[in-house]
Design a protein around this nucleic acid. Structure first.
Length: 150
DNA sequence: GCCAACGTTGGC
DNA sequence: GCCAACGTTGGC
């Protein structure tokens, strides 16, 4: 079992949206490293910290689980989508995703608070220059975050 | 809106 | 394969 932090812009998909939707595809990732985490390393049942980014109060807003293995992101084939990729074909899809199931909304653990806590200092998302939308979380970091959210 | 940091593209 | 130019992310 592994753990992850996944960023979502709440204007697009918030923790409330995700809770209402049930299992839903984590569409729109267009970064190879983030794709590779989903394609190669995620397993059903992995723990996910649901993070709100590009908003007034960025931070961890809920808990989720990986709910499927990887499969092609349908938005890459849709010319109407802002995630359309003309260089990708159904025979050779470039972008993969997993389904995510939100399990609960938590109080907001803000980025500012996260930065102030020594037990979270090792988190990849907090490293200087880090902007990956999906980052691995260690078991110690996961335990520390859940303890803070209790 | 700014801009640091990082990723991608494409000419050579 | 190098690397300059350009694009994107995302906090502030």
């Amino acid at each position: 079992m592994a753990y992850w932090l996944m960023k979502s812009e709440p204007e697009e998909v918030s923790i409330d949206d995700a809770l209402a939707a049930g299992d839903s595809p984590w569409f729109g990732v267009r970064n190879y490293q983030a794709r590779n985490f989903m394609r190669d390393q995620m397993r059903v049942g992995d723990g996910v910290l649901f993070y709100h980014s590009s908003c007034a109060e960025p931070g961890i807003a809920g808990i989720a689980q990986v709910a499927s293995v990887a499969y092609p992101d349908a938005t890459q084939f849709d010319p109407q989508s802002k995630y359309f990729d003309a260089k990708s074909t159904p025979d050779n899809p470039r972008w993969m995703l997993v389904d995510i199931k939100a399990t609960r909304k938590t109080r907001l653990l803000s980025l500012i608070t996260m930065r102030s806590l020594p037990e979270l200092a090792t988190m990849v998302v907090l490293q200087k220059g880090s902007r990956l939308s999906i980052t691995p979380v260690t078991e110690d970091e996961w335990d520390a975050v859940l303890k803070l959210l209790d």
